[in-house]
């Protein structure tokens, strides 16, 4: 299990009911982590519309997770 700090934005924050959480996860990639959290929180935005940033930099969902990474899931927003 890896300890990861996760932050949620926009509709994910709303659906998760929190802005951030620390999770212990068996996931090795951002992709697997998102799938796990989607199931837990009932996210409705398809993964292919999402972006992920790890430790302050946008990256691919295939990125391998390291302990204590800060993972930010970001849906696109358009309001103005």
């Amino acid at each position: 299990m890896t300890q990861i700090n996760v932050r949620y934005y926009a509709i994910l924050r709303e659906q998760a009911g929190m802005t951030h959480q620390s999770v212990d996860t068996p996931a090795h990639t951002a992709d697997a982590l998102f799938t796990e959290l989607s199931a837990a929180h009932g996210f409705t935005v398809p993964r292919n519309l999402m972006k992920v940033a790890i430790n302050g930099e946008f990256c691919d969902f295939s990125r391998v997770l390291n302990a204590h990474d800060e993972v930010v899931f970001i849906p696109p927003v358009a309001g103005g």
Partner: peptide, 10 residues
């Protein structure tokens, strides 16, 4: 570019 959602923006 800017856009927002509820209490957040990009």
């Amino acid at each position: 570019l800017a856009s927002l959602y509820q209490y957040e923006g990009q």
